[in-house]
Design a protein around this nucleic acid. Structure first.
Length: 552
RNA sequence: GUCCCUGUAGUUCAACGGAUAGAACGGCUCCCUUCUAAGGAGCAAAUGAGGGUUCGAUUCCUUCCGGGGAUACCA
Protein backbone atom coordinates (compact mmCIF):
# COMPACT_ATOMS: atom_id res chain seq x y z
CA UNK A 1 0.00 0.00 0.00
CA UNK A 2 1.42 3.34 -1.05
CA UNK A 3 0.12 5.13 1.98
CA UNK A 4 1.62 2.61 4.36
CA UNK A 5 4.92 2.89 2.56
CA UNK A 6 4.98 6.63 3.04
CA UNK A 7 4.06 6.24 6.70
CA UNK A 8 6.90 3.77 7.13
CA UNK A 9 9.35 6.17 5.53
CA UNK A 10 8.22 8.86 7.92
CA UNK A 11 8.55 6.52 10.86
CA UNK A 12 12.21 6.09 10.03
CA UNK A 13 12.68 9.80 10.32
CA UNK A 14 10.32 10.76 13.11
CA UNK A 15 11.18 9.06 16.36
CA UNK A 16 8.94 11.03 18.69
CA UNK A 17 5.64 9.48 19.78
CA UNK A 18 3.32 11.29 17.41
CA UNK A 19 0.76 9.52 15.30
CA UNK A 20 1.77 9.78 11.68
CA UNK A 21 -1.07 10.53 9.36
CA UNK A 22 -0.86 10.51 5.61
CA UNK A 23 -3.84 11.57 3.55
CA UNK A 24 -4.82 12.41 0.01
CA UNK A 25 -5.36 16.17 -0.20
CA UNK A 26 -8.45 17.53 -1.90
CA UNK A 27 -6.40 19.73 -4.15
CA UNK A 28 -3.82 18.16 -6.39
CA UNK A 29 -1.50 21.08 -6.03
CA UNK A 30 -0.81 19.84 -2.51
CA UNK A 31 0.50 16.55 -3.76
CA UNK A 32 -0.72 13.02 -4.30
CA UNK A 33 -0.29 12.38 -0.61
CA UNK A 34 0.40 14.73 2.24
CA UNK A 35 1.25 14.66 5.92
CA UNK A 36 0.82 17.04 8.79
CA UNK A 37 3.36 15.30 10.99
CA UNK A 38 5.66 18.34 11.06
CA UNK A 39 2.85 20.43 12.50
CA UNK A 40 2.33 17.96 15.30
CA UNK A 41 6.01 17.62 15.92
CA UNK A 42 6.51 21.37 16.01
CA UNK A 43 4.07 21.58 18.87
CA UNK A 44 5.82 18.81 20.74
CA UNK A 45 9.25 20.28 20.21
CA UNK A 46 8.05 23.86 20.52
CA UNK A 47 9.75 24.72 17.27
CA UNK A 48 8.73 26.49 14.12
CA UNK A 49 6.66 24.12 12.01
CA UNK A 50 8.22 25.10 8.71
CA UNK A 51 11.68 24.44 10.11
CA UNK A 52 10.59 21.02 11.31
CA UNK A 53 9.05 20.23 7.94
CA UNK A 54 12.21 21.30 6.18
CA UNK A 55 14.25 19.07 8.43
CA UNK A 56 12.06 16.04 7.93
CA UNK A 57 12.13 16.56 4.20
CA UNK A 58 15.89 16.67 4.04
CA UNK A 59 16.36 13.54 6.14
CA UNK A 60 13.63 11.77 4.21
CA UNK A 61 15.45 12.07 0.92
CA UNK A 62 18.22 9.93 2.37
CA UNK A 63 15.84 7.20 3.51
CA UNK A 64 13.48 6.91 0.58
CA UNK A 65 14.10 4.50 -2.26
CA UNK A 66 15.32 6.31 -5.33
CA UNK A 67 12.59 7.20 -7.81
CA UNK A 68 9.76 6.38 -5.44
CA UNK A 69 8.70 9.99 -5.33
CA UNK A 70 8.76 12.45 -8.14
CA UNK A 71 9.07 15.31 -5.71
CA UNK A 72 8.55 16.28 -2.10
CA UNK A 73 7.56 19.80 -1.17
CA UNK A 74 6.82 21.63 1.99
CA UNK A 75 4.01 24.13 2.24
CA UNK A 76 2.96 26.54 4.96
CA UNK A 77 2.19 26.17 7.76
CA UNK A 78 4.23 22.95 7.64
CA UNK A 79 2.66 20.32 5.43
CA UNK A 80 4.91 17.91 3.62
CA UNK A 81 3.50 17.00 0.23
CA UNK A 82 4.47 14.00 -1.85
CA UNK A 83 4.21 13.30 -5.53
CA UNK A 84 4.65 9.71 -6.62
CA UNK A 85 6.95 9.03 -9.52
CA UNK A 86 5.55 7.72 -12.76
CA UNK A 87 7.42 4.50 -12.26
CA UNK A 88 5.89 3.91 -8.86
CA UNK A 89 2.45 4.30 -10.38
CA UNK A 90 3.11 2.27 -13.50
CA UNK A 91 4.48 -0.63 -11.48
CA UNK A 92 1.20 -0.76 -9.59
CA UNK A 93 -0.63 -1.85 -12.73
CA UNK A 94 1.50 -4.94 -12.74
CA UNK A 95 0.67 -5.63 -9.12
CA UNK A 96 -3.06 -5.18 -9.67
CA UNK A 97 -3.12 -7.52 -12.65
CA UNK A 98 -1.11 -10.14 -10.84
CA UNK A 99 -3.17 -10.12 -7.68
CA UNK A 100 -6.49 -9.50 -9.38
CA UNK A 101 -9.24 -10.54 -6.98
CA UNK A 102 -6.76 -10.48 -4.16
CA UNK A 103 -5.61 -6.95 -4.80
CA UNK A 104 -6.36 -4.92 -1.72
CA UNK A 105 -6.92 -7.98 0.40
CA UNK A 106 -5.19 -8.18 3.72
CA UNK A 107 -3.66 -11.54 4.21
CA UNK A 108 -3.29 -12.22 7.86
CA UNK A 109 -0.35 -14.35 8.88
CA UNK A 110 -1.40 -17.97 8.93
CA UNK A 111 0.04 -18.65 12.33
CA UNK A 112 -1.89 -15.91 14.09
CA UNK A 113 -5.39 -16.99 14.91
CA UNK A 114 -7.90 -15.30 12.70
CA UNK A 115 -10.01 -12.72 14.37
CA UNK A 116 -13.51 -14.08 14.50
CA UNK A 117 -16.23 -11.49 14.13
CA UNK A 118 -19.93 -12.05 14.54
CA UNK A 119 -22.14 -9.62 12.72
CA UNK A 120 -25.86 -9.71 13.33
CA UNK A 121 -28.32 -7.72 11.29
CA UNK A 122 -31.91 -7.41 10.06
CA UNK A 123 -33.30 -9.79 12.71
CA UNK A 124 -36.78 -8.58 11.82
CA UNK A 125 -39.69 -9.70 13.93
CA UNK A 126 -41.41 -12.68 12.33
CA UNK A 127 -44.74 -10.93 12.52
CA UNK A 128 -44.76 -9.31 9.10
CA UNK A 129 -42.74 -8.55 5.99
CA UNK A 130 -39.46 -6.68 6.03
CA UNK A 131 -39.53 -2.93 6.11
CA UNK A 132 -37.38 -0.44 4.31
CA UNK A 133 -35.51 0.13 7.54
CA UNK A 134 -34.68 -3.57 7.62
CA UNK A 135 -33.30 -3.14 4.13
CA UNK A 136 -31.00 -0.36 5.16
CA UNK A 137 -29.56 -2.36 8.01
CA UNK A 138 -29.46 -5.48 5.87
CA UNK A 139 -27.40 -4.02 3.06
CA UNK A 140 -25.17 -2.29 5.54
CA UNK A 141 -24.49 -5.51 7.42
CA UNK A 142 -23.94 -7.54 4.30
CA UNK A 143 -21.49 -5.10 2.72
CA UNK A 144 -19.68 -4.58 5.99
CA UNK A 145 -19.30 -8.32 6.44
CA UNK A 146 -17.82 -8.57 2.95
CA UNK A 147 -15.36 -5.82 3.67
CA UNK A 148 -14.28 -7.27 7.00
CA UNK A 149 -13.81 -10.65 5.37
CA UNK A 150 -11.72 -9.06 2.64
CA UNK A 151 -9.58 -7.61 5.39
CA UNK A 152 -8.69 -11.12 6.46
CA UNK A 153 -11.15 -11.57 9.30
CA UNK A 154 -13.24 -14.62 9.87
CA UNK A 155 -16.79 -13.35 9.76
CA UNK A 156 -20.08 -15.01 10.69
CA UNK A 157 -23.24 -13.29 9.48
CA UNK A 158 -26.20 -14.05 11.61
CA UNK A 159 -29.87 -13.44 11.97
CA UNK A 160 -31.72 -13.63 15.27
CA UNK A 161 -35.25 -14.89 14.95
CA UNK A 162 -37.53 -13.38 17.58
CA UNK A 163 -39.81 -16.35 17.77
CA UNK A 164 -40.07 -16.95 21.52
CA UNK A 165 -43.40 -18.40 22.54
CA UNK A 166 -43.05 -16.58 25.82
CA UNK A 167 -43.02 -13.19 24.10
CA UNK A 168 -45.91 -10.80 23.95
CA UNK A 169 -45.63 -10.25 20.23
CA UNK A 170 -45.91 -13.95 19.46
CA UNK A 171 -48.93 -14.31 21.70
CA UNK A 172 -50.54 -11.29 20.04
CA UNK A 173 -49.78 -12.80 16.66
CA UNK A 174 -51.46 -15.97 17.87
CA UNK A 175 -54.56 -14.04 18.78
CA UNK A 176 -54.65 -12.59 15.30
CA UNK A 177 -54.23 -16.09 13.91
CA UNK A 178 -57.33 -17.35 15.66
CA UNK A 179 -59.26 -14.26 14.77
CA UNK A 180 -59.56 -12.44 18.04
CA UNK A 181 -56.59 -10.13 17.67
CA UNK A 182 -57.31 -6.48 17.21
CA UNK A 183 -54.35 -5.87 14.94
CA UNK A 184 -54.85 -5.01 11.31
CA UNK A 185 -54.60 -7.92 8.92
CA UNK A 186 -53.03 -7.39 5.55
CA UNK A 187 -54.11 -9.60 2.67
CA UNK A 188 -50.78 -11.29 2.90
CA UNK A 189 -51.30 -12.10 6.54
CA UNK A 190 -54.80 -13.44 5.84
CA UNK A 191 -53.29 -15.81 3.32
CA UNK A 192 -50.74 -17.03 5.78
CA UNK A 193 -53.35 -17.62 8.41
CA UNK A 194 -55.26 -19.71 5.89
CA UNK A 195 -52.09 -21.63 5.17
CA UNK A 196 -51.79 -22.32 8.86
CA UNK A 197 -55.11 -24.05 8.58
CA UNK A 198 -57.45 -25.15 11.31
CA UNK A 199 -54.64 -26.85 13.24
CA UNK A 200 -55.66 -26.70 16.82
CA UNK A 201 -53.01 -24.89 18.75
CA UNK A 202 -52.94 -25.37 22.47
CA UNK A 203 -52.96 -21.67 23.16
CA UNK A 204 -52.33 -18.29 21.61
CA UNK A 205 -48.57 -18.58 22.04
CA UNK A 206 -48.46 -21.82 20.12
CA UNK A 207 -50.68 -20.45 17.40
CA UNK A 208 -48.45 -17.41 17.19
CA UNK A 209 -45.34 -19.52 17.07
CA UNK A 210 -46.68 -21.57 14.17
CA UNK A 211 -47.76 -18.51 12.26
CA UNK A 212 -44.42 -16.83 12.94
CA UNK A 213 -42.73 -19.84 11.46
CA UNK A 214 -44.59 -19.40 8.20
CA UNK A 215 -43.85 -15.69 8.11
CA UNK A 216 -40.22 -16.33 8.93
CA UNK A 217 -39.86 -18.87 6.16
CA UNK A 218 -41.17 -16.35 3.68
CA UNK A 219 -38.88 -13.65 5.02
CA UNK A 220 -35.95 -15.98 4.76
CA UNK A 221 -36.77 -16.82 1.15
CA UNK A 222 -37.10 -13.14 0.41
CA UNK A 223 -33.76 -12.36 2.02
CA UNK A 224 -31.93 -15.11 0.21
CA UNK A 225 -33.56 -14.90 -3.19
CA UNK A 226 -34.46 -11.28 -3.58
CA UNK A 227 -32.02 -9.45 -1.34
CA UNK A 228 -29.34 -11.98 -2.21
CA UNK A 229 -28.07 -11.95 1.33
CA UNK A 230 -26.77 -15.25 2.61
CA UNK A 231 -26.63 -15.65 6.35
CA UNK A 232 -24.28 -18.16 7.91
CA UNK A 233 -26.47 -18.66 10.91
CA UNK A 234 -30.16 -18.35 11.68
CA UNK A 235 -30.44 -18.24 15.43
CA UNK A 236 -33.80 -18.91 17.04
CA UNK A 237 -34.75 -17.17 20.27
CA UNK A 238 -37.13 -19.99 21.14
CA UNK A 239 -34.19 -22.40 21.04
CA UNK A 240 -32.59 -20.49 23.88
CA UNK A 241 -35.59 -21.47 25.95
CA UNK A 242 -35.67 -25.03 24.74
CA UNK A 243 -31.97 -25.55 25.40
CA UNK A 244 -32.35 -24.18 28.90
CA UNK A 245 -29.96 -21.31 28.27
CA UNK A 246 -32.46 -18.74 29.48
CA UNK A 247 -33.12 -20.53 32.72
CA UNK A 248 -29.44 -21.17 33.25
CA UNK A 249 -28.66 -17.50 32.81
CA UNK A 250 -31.24 -16.57 35.42
CA UNK A 251 -29.61 -19.02 37.80
CA UNK A 252 -26.18 -17.56 37.20
CA UNK A 253 -27.41 -14.06 37.80
CA UNK A 254 -28.97 -15.22 41.01
CA UNK A 255 -25.74 -16.82 42.09
CA UNK A 256 -23.94 -13.57 41.39
CA UNK A 257 -26.58 -11.84 43.49
CA UNK A 258 -27.46 -9.52 40.65
CA UNK A 259 -31.23 -9.97 40.67
CA UNK A 260 -34.00 -9.15 43.07
CA UNK A 261 -37.78 -9.35 43.27
CA UNK A 262 -39.98 -6.28 43.25
CA UNK A 263 -43.68 -5.98 42.42
CA UNK A 264 -43.72 -9.71 41.67
CA UNK A 265 -41.23 -9.18 38.85
CA UNK A 266 -37.56 -10.15 38.73
CA UNK A 267 -35.13 -7.30 38.18
CA UNK A 268 -31.51 -7.14 37.07
CA UNK A 269 -29.24 -4.71 38.88
CA UNK A 270 -28.14 -3.08 35.65
CA UNK A 271 -27.63 0.26 37.38
CA UNK A 272 -24.55 -1.27 38.97
CA UNK A 273 -23.06 -1.60 35.50
CA UNK A 274 -23.73 1.81 34.12
CA UNK A 275 -27.36 1.64 33.04
CA UNK A 276 -29.74 4.41 34.09
CA UNK A 277 -31.99 2.08 35.96
CA UNK A 278 -32.50 -1.54 36.85
CA UNK A 279 -34.35 -3.64 34.30
CA UNK A 280 -37.00 -6.28 34.45
CA UNK A 281 -35.92 -9.75 33.40
CA UNK A 282 -39.08 -11.65 34.28
CA UNK A 283 -42.48 -9.98 34.24
CA UNK A 284 -45.10 -9.98 36.88
CA UNK A 285 -47.30 -13.04 36.21
CA UNK A 286 -50.36 -12.31 34.10
CA UNK A 287 -52.37 -14.75 36.12
CA UNK A 288 -51.74 -14.83 39.82
CA UNK A 289 -50.01 -17.99 40.87
CA UNK A 290 -48.50 -18.70 37.46
CA UNK A 291 -44.92 -18.05 36.53
CA UNK A 292 -44.11 -14.75 34.86
CA UNK A 293 -42.72 -14.54 31.36
CA UNK A 294 -39.24 -13.26 30.63
CA UNK A 295 -38.86 -9.96 28.82
CA UNK A 296 -36.94 -9.68 25.58
CA UNK A 297 -33.86 -8.72 27.56
CA UNK A 298 -33.24 -12.02 29.30
CA UNK A 299 -33.02 -14.28 26.24
CA UNK A 300 -31.20 -11.57 24.33
CA UNK A 301 -28.53 -11.44 27.00
CA UNK A 302 -28.32 -15.22 26.84
CA UNK A 303 -27.91 -14.88 23.09
CA UNK A 304 -25.05 -12.43 23.39
CA UNK A 305 -23.38 -14.52 26.04
CA UNK A 306 -23.65 -17.40 23.64
CA UNK A 307 -21.74 -15.36 21.08
CA UNK A 308 -19.02 -14.38 23.50
CA UNK A 309 -18.71 -17.26 25.90
CA UNK A 310 -19.74 -20.32 23.95
CA UNK A 311 -18.77 -19.43 20.41
CA UNK A 312 -15.93 -17.21 21.60
CA UNK A 313 -16.13 -14.37 19.14
CA UNK A 314 -13.52 -11.68 19.65
CA UNK A 315 -15.78 -9.05 18.32
CA UNK A 316 -19.52 -8.86 18.03
CA UNK A 317 -21.25 -6.35 15.79
CA UNK A 318 -24.98 -5.66 16.08
CA UNK A 319 -26.79 -3.48 13.61
CA UNK A 320 -29.95 -1.93 15.00
CA UNK A 321 -32.54 0.54 13.92
CA UNK A 322 -32.53 3.88 15.71
CA UNK A 323 -35.66 2.97 17.65
CA UNK A 324 -33.63 0.44 19.65
CA UNK A 325 -30.74 2.59 20.67
CA UNK A 326 -32.03 3.10 24.21
CA UNK A 327 -31.68 -0.59 24.75
CA UNK A 328 -27.92 -0.66 24.40
CA UNK A 329 -26.88 0.40 27.97
CA UNK A 330 -28.93 -2.48 29.32
CA UNK A 331 -27.32 -5.07 27.10
CA UNK A 332 -23.86 -3.70 27.72
CA UNK A 333 -24.55 -3.73 31.46
CA UNK A 334 -25.59 -7.35 31.21
CA UNK A 335 -22.40 -8.26 29.39
CA UNK A 336 -20.30 -6.32 31.83
CA UNK A 337 -21.74 -8.43 34.61
CA UNK A 338 -20.06 -11.35 32.90
CA UNK A 339 -16.78 -9.56 32.43
CA UNK A 340 -17.17 -8.67 28.79
CA UNK A 341 -15.61 -5.33 27.96
CA UNK A 342 -17.59 -2.57 26.34
CA UNK A 343 -15.56 -2.37 23.17
CA UNK A 344 -16.11 -6.05 22.39
CA UNK A 345 -19.64 -5.26 21.34
CA UNK A 346 -20.00 -2.72 18.58
CA UNK A 347 -23.53 -1.54 18.08
CA UNK A 348 -24.16 0.28 14.85
CA UNK A 349 -27.32 2.30 14.86
CA UNK A 350 -28.79 2.97 11.47
CA UNK A 351 -31.11 5.93 11.54
CA UNK A 352 -34.65 5.64 10.33
CA UNK A 353 -35.55 6.09 6.72
CA UNK A 354 -38.22 8.62 5.91
CA UNK A 355 -40.35 7.79 2.95
CA UNK A 356 -41.33 10.73 0.85
CA UNK A 357 -44.25 10.34 -1.48
CA UNK A 358 -45.49 13.23 -3.57
CA UNK A 359 -43.39 15.60 -1.48
CA UNK A 360 -44.91 14.43 1.76
CA UNK A 361 -43.70 12.05 4.38
CA UNK A 362 -45.37 8.66 4.38
CA UNK A 363 -45.38 7.14 7.81
CA UNK A 364 -44.53 3.53 7.95
CA UNK A 365 -47.26 1.98 9.95
CA UNK A 366 -47.50 -1.73 10.30
CA UNK A 367 -50.82 -1.47 12.02
CA UNK A 368 -52.58 0.41 9.29
CA UNK A 369 -50.83 -1.53 6.59
CA UNK A 370 -49.93 1.73 4.91
CA UNK A 371 -46.25 1.22 4.68
CA UNK A 372 -44.28 0.39 1.61
CA UNK A 373 -42.53 -2.90 2.09
CA UNK A 374 -38.95 -3.52 1.15
CA UNK A 375 -40.15 -5.95 -1.47
CA UNK A 376 -42.21 -3.32 -3.22
CA UNK A 377 -39.30 -0.94 -3.17
CA UNK A 378 -36.96 -3.45 -4.72
CA UNK A 379 -39.50 -4.40 -7.35
CA UNK A 380 -39.70 -0.77 -8.32
CA UNK A 381 -36.09 0.34 -8.36
CA UNK A 382 -34.16 -2.91 -8.69
CA UNK A 383 -31.79 -4.59 -6.29
CA UNK A 384 -28.57 -2.95 -7.47
CA UNK A 385 -30.03 0.51 -7.27
CA UNK A 386 -31.59 -0.12 -3.86
CA UNK A 387 -28.39 -1.53 -2.43
CA UNK A 388 -26.25 1.23 -3.83
CA UNK A 389 -28.62 3.91 -2.68
CA UNK A 390 -28.77 2.69 0.90
CA UNK A 391 -25.07 1.99 1.10
CA UNK A 392 -24.19 5.42 -0.19
CA UNK A 393 -25.19 7.14 3.00
CA UNK A 394 -23.67 7.01 6.42
CA UNK A 395 -25.83 5.05 8.87
CA UNK A 396 -26.12 8.25 10.90
CA UNK A 397 -27.99 10.00 8.14
CA UNK A 398 -31.68 10.42 8.68
CA UNK A 399 -32.24 9.76 5.06
CA UNK A 400 -35.16 10.75 2.94
CA UNK A 401 -36.17 8.19 0.40
CA UNK A 402 -38.18 9.85 -2.30
CA UNK A 403 -40.22 7.09 -3.85
CA UNK A 404 -41.31 9.08 -6.85
CA UNK A 405 -37.76 10.11 -7.56
CA UNK A 406 -36.43 6.60 -7.15
CA UNK A 407 -39.05 5.40 -9.59
CA UNK A 408 -38.92 8.07 -12.23
CA UNK A 409 -35.28 8.82 -12.12
CA UNK A 410 -34.03 5.32 -11.74
CA UNK A 411 -31.88 5.87 -14.78
CA UNK A 412 -30.27 8.84 -13.11
CA UNK A 413 -29.31 6.74 -10.17
CA UNK A 414 -25.60 6.93 -9.50
CA UNK A 415 -25.32 3.17 -9.58
CA UNK A 416 -25.77 3.29 -13.34
CA UNK A 417 -23.02 5.81 -13.62
CA UNK A 418 -20.62 3.45 -11.91
CA UNK A 419 -21.83 0.35 -13.69
CA UNK A 420 -21.60 2.12 -17.02
CA UNK A 421 -17.93 2.90 -16.42
CA UNK A 422 -17.21 -0.75 -15.67
CA UNK A 423 -19.18 -1.90 -18.68
CA UNK A 424 -17.21 0.46 -20.86
CA UNK A 425 -13.98 -1.15 -19.63
CA UNK A 426 -15.37 -4.57 -20.25
CA UNK A 427 -16.58 -3.82 -23.73
CA UNK A 428 -13.28 -2.30 -24.80
CA UNK A 429 -11.49 -5.41 -23.67
CA UNK A 430 -13.85 -7.52 -25.69
CA UNK A 431 -13.32 -5.65 -28.92
CA UNK A 432 -12.50 -8.23 -31.55
CA UNK A 433 -9.59 -6.12 -32.72
CA UNK A 434 -7.72 -6.99 -29.59
CA UNK A 435 -8.13 -10.67 -29.88
CA UNK A 436 -5.25 -12.44 -31.41
CA UNK A 437 -6.27 -14.20 -34.63
CA UNK A 438 -6.42 -17.71 -33.25
CA UNK A 439 -7.72 -16.97 -29.79
CA UNK A 440 -10.77 -15.49 -28.21
CA UNK A 441 -8.75 -14.56 -25.21
CA UNK A 442 -7.76 -11.08 -24.26
CA UNK A 443 -4.02 -10.90 -24.89
CA UNK A 444 -1.78 -10.98 -21.88
CA UNK A 445 -0.59 -7.54 -20.95
CA UNK A 446 3.02 -6.75 -21.66
CA UNK A 447 4.43 -5.18 -18.59
CA UNK A 448 7.49 -3.72 -20.27
CA UNK A 449 5.19 -1.30 -22.05
CA UNK A 450 3.74 0.19 -18.91
CA UNK A 451 6.15 3.10 -18.98
CA UNK A 452 4.20 4.35 -21.97
CA UNK A 453 1.36 5.23 -19.61
CA UNK A 454 2.48 8.72 -18.91
CA UNK A 455 -0.23 11.16 -19.86
CA UNK A 456 -1.96 13.12 -17.15
CA UNK A 457 -5.11 11.04 -17.64
CA UNK A 458 -3.23 7.74 -17.45
CA UNK A 459 -1.52 8.72 -14.25
CA UNK A 460 -4.62 10.20 -12.63
CA UNK A 461 -6.49 7.00 -13.27
CA UNK A 462 -3.69 4.85 -11.87
CA UNK A 463 -3.54 7.03 -8.79
CA UNK A 464 -7.20 6.33 -8.20
CA UNK A 465 -6.67 2.58 -8.63
CA UNK A 466 -3.84 2.61 -6.15
CA UNK A 467 -6.09 4.05 -3.50
CA UNK A 468 -8.35 1.02 -3.47
CA UNK A 469 -6.59 -0.90 -0.65
CA UNK A 470 -6.43 2.25 1.43
CA UNK A 471 -10.14 2.83 0.96
CA UNK A 472 -10.96 -0.71 1.99
CA UNK A 473 -8.94 -0.36 5.12
CA UNK A 474 -10.60 2.90 5.98
CA UNK A 475 -14.05 1.45 5.36
CA UNK A 476 -13.27 -1.56 7.56
CA UNK A 477 -11.79 0.46 10.39
CA UNK A 478 -14.70 2.83 10.51
CA UNK A 479 -17.33 0.18 9.80
CA UNK A 480 -18.37 2.43 6.94
CA UNK A 481 -19.17 0.85 3.58
CA UNK A 482 -20.26 4.25 2.31
CA UNK A 483 -16.61 5.17 1.98
CA UNK A 484 -16.26 2.45 -0.63
CA UNK A 485 -19.38 3.60 -2.44
CA UNK A 486 -18.07 7.14 -2.62
CA UNK A 487 -14.83 5.78 -3.94
CA UNK A 488 -16.60 3.86 -6.68
CA UNK A 489 -18.18 7.10 -7.82
CA UNK A 490 -14.82 8.86 -7.84
CA UNK A 491 -13.25 6.02 -9.76
CA UNK A 492 -16.05 6.03 -12.29
CA UNK A 493 -15.70 9.76 -12.77
CA UNK A 494 -11.97 9.43 -13.24
CA UNK A 495 -12.46 6.67 -15.74
CA UNK A 496 -15.13 8.47 -17.77
CA UNK A 497 -12.82 11.44 -17.86
CA UNK A 498 -9.96 9.29 -19.06
CA UNK A 499 -12.16 7.62 -21.63
CA UNK A 500 -13.18 10.95 -23.06
CA UNK A 501 -9.62 12.12 -23.55
CA UNK A 502 -7.57 9.06 -24.35
CA UNK A 503 -7.96 6.41 -26.96
CA UNK A 504 -7.26 2.79 -26.36
CA UNK A 505 -7.84 1.29 -29.75
CA UNK A 506 -5.16 2.32 -32.17
CA UNK A 507 -5.87 2.84 -35.82
CA UNK A 508 -3.36 0.55 -37.43
CA UNK A 509 -4.19 1.21 -41.03
CA UNK A 510 -1.47 2.51 -43.30
CA UNK A 511 1.34 2.35 -40.79
CA UNK A 512 4.89 1.29 -41.55
CA UNK A 513 6.51 -1.43 -39.49
CA UNK A 514 7.97 0.92 -36.90
CA UNK A 515 4.80 2.88 -36.45
CA UNK A 516 2.81 -0.32 -36.25
CA UNK A 517 4.97 -1.69 -33.49
CA UNK A 518 4.80 1.57 -31.59
CA UNK A 519 1.04 1.72 -31.86
CA UNK A 520 0.72 -1.85 -30.72
CA UNK A 521 2.96 -1.28 -27.73
CA UNK A 522 0.97 1.72 -26.76
CA UNK A 523 -2.29 -0.11 -27.16
CA UNK A 524 -1.11 -2.97 -24.99
CA UNK A 525 -0.12 -0.56 -22.28
CA UNK A 526 -3.53 1.09 -22.31
CA UNK A 527 -5.15 -2.30 -22.47
CA UNK A 528 -3.36 -3.27 -19.28
CA UNK A 529 -4.58 -0.08 -17.64
CA UNK A 530 -8.17 -0.82 -18.62
CA UNK A 531 -7.85 -4.37 -17.36
CA UNK A 532 -6.55 -3.09 -14.05
CA UNK A 533 -9.40 -0.62 -13.83
CA UNK A 534 -11.89 -3.38 -14.43
CA UNK A 535 -10.26 -5.47 -11.71
CA UNK A 536 -10.85 -2.66 -9.24
CA UNK A 537 -14.43 -2.19 -10.37
CA UNK A 538 -15.11 -5.89 -10.02
CA UNK A 539 -13.58 -6.05 -6.56
CA UNK A 540 -15.61 -3.03 -5.51
CA UNK A 541 -18.83 -4.46 -6.89
CA UNK A 542 -18.25 -7.78 -5.18
CA UNK A 543 -17.79 -6.11 -1.84
CA UNK A 544 -20.82 -3.90 -2.24
CA UNK A 545 -22.88 -6.75 -3.63
CA UNK A 546 -23.88 -5.12 -6.87
CA UNK A 547 -23.66 -6.76 -10.25
CA UNK A 548 -21.62 -5.94 -13.31
CA UNK A 549 -24.08 -5.83 -16.21
CA UNK A 550 -22.95 -7.42 -19.47
CA UNK A 551 -23.96 -4.36 -21.38
CA UNK A 552 -26.07 -1.30 -20.85
C1' G B 1 -37.06 16.61 31.70
C1' U B 2 -33.11 12.99 30.40
C1' C B 3 -30.43 10.14 26.58
C1' C B 4 -28.97 9.08 21.21
C1' C B 5 -28.71 10.95 16.17
C1' U B 6 -28.98 15.44 13.29
C1' G B 7 -28.89 20.89 11.07
C1' U B 8 -23.84 22.07 4.88
C1' A B 9 -25.78 24.81 -2.55
C1' G B 10 -32.95 25.02 -4.67
C1' U B 11 -33.08 19.37 -3.27
C1' U B 12 -30.66 14.61 -1.50
C1' C B 13 -26.04 13.67 0.54
C1' A B 14 -19.88 14.06 1.28
C1' A B 15 -15.69 16.02 3.84
C1' C B 16 -9.46 10.67 10.13
C1' G B 17 -9.03 18.67 13.45
C1' G B 18 -6.08 20.47 7.75
C1' A B 19 -4.76 23.90 2.76
C1' U B 20 -9.55 27.05 -2.25
C1' A B 21 -16.03 22.81 1.94
C1' G B 22 -16.87 18.13 -2.48
C1' A B 23 -20.61 15.26 -5.54
C1' A B 24 -25.32 14.08 -7.62
C1' C B 25 -30.13 15.82 -9.13
C1' G B 26 -32.35 20.41 -10.74
C1' G B 27 -30.95 25.41 -13.57
C1' C B 28 -27.79 27.87 -17.49
C1' U B 29 -23.61 27.33 -21.69
C1' C B 30 -20.84 24.15 -24.86
C1' C B 31 -19.06 18.95 -27.01
C1' C B 32 -21.49 12.99 -31.05
C1' U B 33 -16.88 11.89 -38.89
C1' U B 34 -13.59 9.02 -32.82
C1' C B 35 -13.50 2.31 -28.47
C1' U B 36 -21.61 2.77 -25.84
C1' A B 37 -23.55 10.72 -25.16
C1' A B 38 -26.59 5.97 -19.50
C1' G B 39 -20.66 10.20 -21.31
C1' G B 40 -17.38 14.76 -21.17
C1' A B 41 -16.01 20.38 -20.42
C1' G B 42 -17.76 24.89 -18.02
C1' C B 43 -21.07 28.61 -15.01
C1' A B 44 -24.29 30.11 -10.75
C1' A B 45 -25.20 28.19 -5.83
C1' A B 46 -24.12 26.23 1.00
C1' U B 47 -21.49 25.17 6.84
C1' G B 48 -28.71 27.38 11.74
C1' A B 49 -26.86 31.61 15.64
C1' G B 50 -23.39 33.15 19.42
C1' G B 51 -19.07 32.12 22.57
C1' G B 52 -14.52 29.02 23.49
C1' U B 53 -10.04 25.51 22.57
C1' U B 54 -6.27 25.39 18.28
C1' C B 55 -1.00 27.40 13.94
C1' G B 56 -5.74 25.68 11.73
C1' A B 57 -12.96 24.07 13.44
C1' U B 58 -18.27 21.78 9.06
C1' U B 59 -15.61 18.51 12.55
C1' C B 60 -13.95 19.20 19.50
C1' C B 61 -16.28 21.99 24.13
C1' U B 62 -20.38 25.36 25.55
C1' U B 63 -25.12 28.19 25.22
C1' C B 64 -29.28 29.09 22.21
C1' C B 65 -32.73 27.88 18.09
C1' G B 66 -34.70 23.90 14.75
C1' G B 67 -35.62 18.42 13.00
C1' G B 68 -35.83 12.81 13.95
C1' G B 69 -35.77 8.87 17.54
C1' A B 70 -35.79 6.68 22.55
C1' U B 71 -37.41 7.08 27.40
C1' A B 72 -42.22 -0.29 28.43
C1' C B 73 -42.94 -5.78 32.88
C1' C B 74 -42.95 -4.23 23.19
C1' A B 75 -39.17 -6.24 20.40
Amino acid sequence: MVKVKIINYLKEVVKEPVSIEVFVPDNEKFGHYSTNVALKLAKLRKQNSMTVAEEIKSVLSRVVVKDFFKKIEIAPPGFINFWLSEKTLQDKIKEILKKEKKYGQQLKAKSSKLKAISIEFISANPTGPLTIGNGRGGFLGDALANILKFQGNKVVKEYYINDAKASTQIRELGKTAVGIGKSYKTKDLELKIKKLGPKKAKNYSDAGYLLAKIIQEDNKKFIENKLKIKFDKWFSEENLYKSGAVEKLLGELKKKNLIYKKDDAIWFKSKQFGDNEDRVLVRQPRVAGQAGEPTYFLPDLAYHLNKFKIRKFNKVIDIWGADHHGYSPRLKAGLKAFGIADEKLKIIISQLVRLIKKGKETKMSKRKGEYVSLEELIDEVGLDAARFFFLMYSPNTHMDFDLDLAKEKSLENPVYYVQYAAVRCDSILKKPKFQSPNSKQIPKPKFQNLKLLNTKEDLNLIRMLVRFPEIIEEAAQNYSPQILVRYSLDLARQFHNFYEKEHIIADLRGLNADQYRQSMDFMFARLALIQATLVIFKNTFNLLGITLPKKM
